[in-house]
Amino acid sequence: MKYLKKIIPFAVSIFFVILFCYAAISKILDFENFQVQISASPLLNAFSQFLPYTIIIVEVIIAGLLCYPKTRTIGLIGSFILMLIFTGYIALLLRTSKNLPCSCGGILEKMSWNQHLYFNIGCVILSVIALGLNLKCSGPAD
């Protein structure tokens, strides 16, 4: 059981590293489209000058933090917060808007908004589980 408590946060961290790096690279490779999609969102339009850069930088920083055991807890907290923000944004869009382009990049933009919401909720849950187990494992010795 102790092995699982260590491997789950590690595996979830790898998942988020792949997810955030993939998303950031996809956004960089199609940066103009990413900027246009952000500016097309009624909720994000006011922030469209700096938000595309900020999202990419934050995704890369969190991915980097997840790579090292000493910074993994901070990375998991960052993953939780970022995915919670993305999930809240999607939920709000589903309640207030129709047919908005997805600015996620890559295969994630092929998902419907509802699929995206469920995927993000799953990511939030994964981050909470991994964070809880990581805190238990990195806490004081039993």
Rank of each mutant, 00 (worst) to 15 (best):
M1T: 10
Y3E: 11
Y3M: 08
Y3I: 12
I7Q: 08
I7C: 01
F10D: 04
A11H: 04
V12R: 00
V12Q: 01
S13M: 03
F15L: 14
F15Y: 13
F16S: 00
F16L: 13
V17H: 02
V17M: 04
V17E: 02
I18V: 15
L19Y: 09
L19A: 10
F20D: 08
F20Y: 10
C21W: 09
C21R: 02
Y22D: 14
Y22T: 14
A23W: 06
A23G: 04
A23Y: 07
A24H: 02
S26Y: 00
K27G: 04
I28F: 03
I28N: 03
L29R: 11
L29G: 07
L29V: 08
L29D: 09
L29P: 00
D30W: 00
D30M: 09
D30E: 07
F31L: 03
E32T: 11
E32G: 13
F34D: 00
F34K: 02
V36A: 04
Q37A: 02
I38C: 08
I38Y: 07
S39I: 06
A40K: 03
L43W: 08
L44C: 01
L44G: 01
N45K: 03
N45M: 02
A46Y: 14
F47G: 00
S48L: 04
F50M: 01
Y53G: 09
Y53R: 00
Y53L: 11
Y53S: 07
I55S: 03
I56D: 07
V58L: 10
I62E: 02
A63H: 11
A63R: 08
L65V: 11
C67N: 13
C67L: 15
Y68T: 15
I74L: 15
I74R: 12
L76V: 12
L76K: 15
L76G: 02
L76Y: 15
I77K: 15
I77Q: 09
G78Q: 14
S79K: 12
F80G: 10
I81Y: 04
L82V: 10
M83N: 11
M83L: 10
M83A: 06
L84Y: 10
L84K: 14
F86M: 07
T87L: 13
Y89V: 06
Y89E: 06
I90A: 00
A91M: 08
L92R: 06
L92A: 07
L92N: 12
L93P: 08
L94E: 12
R95T: 13
T96N: 10
T96L: 15
T96P: 06
K98F: 06
C102N: 02
C102S: 14
C102T: 04
S103W: 01
S103L: 08
L108E: 00
E109S: 10
M111D: 05
S112W: 10
W113L: 09
W113I: 05
W113T: 01
Q115W: 02
L117A: 06
Y118M: 08
F119V: 04
N120E: 08
I125T: 04
I125F: 14
L126Q: 03
L126P: 07
V128P: 00
A130I: 08
L131F: 11
G132N: 05
G132L: 01
L133F: 04
K136E: 14
C137Y: 07
A141H: 15
A141M: 14
